[in-house]
């Protein structure tokens, strides 16, 4: 209701009355993925100048492979953040899902494809658990996923008895780590799988009623409900979609680490949130794009690889990520204050 003083007719909204800063604000407001894109391009150029190795095809393809797991998880995280929620358990859910796949396959001799499907089903189940707690018992997503984070961690450690399982090189589950060559650039199937995830969820958000309803629900849940949207169903669906991306990310993780490690998931929770936030999606819900999260995950990896190649103390990578997150949220706050 803060817009009460806004001009009453569209004629008074002619952009010529706006200052340059306001125009930038409007531009960023209309295009949520624009600011991360600018940051990414600038970062790539700067690191390309600083270290000559950075722009080599090998460095770049390694960079993309390193961000594939976070990138895939960030798809699910974006969908949840768009509903004004947050998922603190997503990384551990992925580890749990990958343990199911690997242990079924390796310990119990279940064929790879079947083990994969059951593992993805386990990922979906983690999403359903979160979603049911959020929508049926009406608990805040932050609390629900903080709790399930601990639960999934404990279940993963108990299930694996704290042990890492390594798969034989020819295992079906490691297919996501295999490289396909396009000219001099090598790219893994895992990276392609991640891109498919982005394309699919991006399409659904943009072109289906489900997408509209998800944005409307995250924007203002009461208003969406009054408009006739069944918001509980929409929220639950967001967690189920996140569960699917958890399963796919788990498969990509298998390819990255060559098996399953119950201790691998700790950082992924926060890294996926970092990617979403740097990608311009608002933590208040209703605003943002999945493609932004892809850019966000890339930005973090570009800083990490770039600083490493420049020979800087690795602790500065963490510092840089922290500054980026705070800057991104500050920019989001500024954009949200856009005036008519």
């Amino acid at each position: 209701m803060s817009e009460q003083t806004a001009p009453a007719s569209a004629e008074e909204l002619v952009p010529s009355r706006h200052s340059p800063a306001q125009r930038v604000q409007h531009l960023l407001h209309r295009n949520p993925a624009l600011s991360p894109l600018i940051v990414l391009v600038v970062a790539v150029l700067v690191f390309g100048v600083v270290s000559e190795n950075f722009l080599r095809p090998q460095s770049l393809s390694l960079l993309v492979q390193q961000m594939a797991v976070v990138g895939a998880l960030a798809v699910g995280q974006t969908v949840i953040v768009l509903t004004a929620g947050i998922d603190l358990s997503i990384g551990m859910a992925m580890v749990l899902s990958s343990l199911v796949m690997v242990k079924l396959n390796f310990d119990h001799g279940v064929p790879g494809p079947l083990a994969l499907l059951i593992g993805i089903a386990a990922g979906i189940l983690t999403g359903v658990v979160n979603g049911v707690l959020v929508t049926r018992i009406n608990l805040p997503p932050f609390i629900v996923t903080l709790g399930t984070f601990s639960i999934f961690t404990a279940v993963a450690l108990l299930y694996a008895a704290g042990q890492t399982t390594a798969l034989p090189d020819d295992s079906f589950l490691l297919w996501t780590g295999e490289t396909i060559r396009i000219g001099s650039v090598g790219i893994t199937w895992g990276v392609l799988l991640m891109l498919v995830l982005y394309a699919g969820v991006g399409f659904a958000l943009r072109n289906t009623a489900w997408g509209r309803h998800l944005y409307a629900t995250g924007d203002d849940r009461d208003a969406a409900e009054l408009a006739g949207i069944r918001t509980k169903r929409v929220l639950l669906s967001a967690y189920v979609v996140a569960g699917v991306t958890v399963g796919v990310a788990a498969w990509i993780l298998c390819g990255r680490v060559g098996g399953a490690d119950p201790n691998a998931g700790l950082n992924y929770n926060l890294m996926s949130i970092t990617a979403v936030v740097i990608g311009g999606t608002s933590l208040f819900g209703g605003r943002g794009l999945v493609i932004g999260s892809l850019l966000g995950a890339l930005i973090v990896q570009v800083f990490n690889s770039g600083l490493a190649l420049a020979g800087v103390d690795p602790n500065y990578q963490v510092l840089a990520t922290g500054i980026l997150v705070i800057l991104a949220v500050a920019v989001d706050q500024w954009i949200r204050r856009v005036k008519a």
């Binding site: 009623a209 944005y215 409307a216 924007d219 203002d220 208003a223 969406a224 009054l226 408009a227 949207i229």
Partner: peptide, 20 residues
């Protein structure tokens, strides 16, 4: 009284909200 519109969506999307 509390407006049942989705602020981030455009006018057309709001008119067709929940009956796309």
């Amino acid at each position: 009284q509390t407006l049942a519109v989705a602020p981030a969506l455009d006018i057309a999307s709001n008119l067709f909200l929940a009956r796309e």
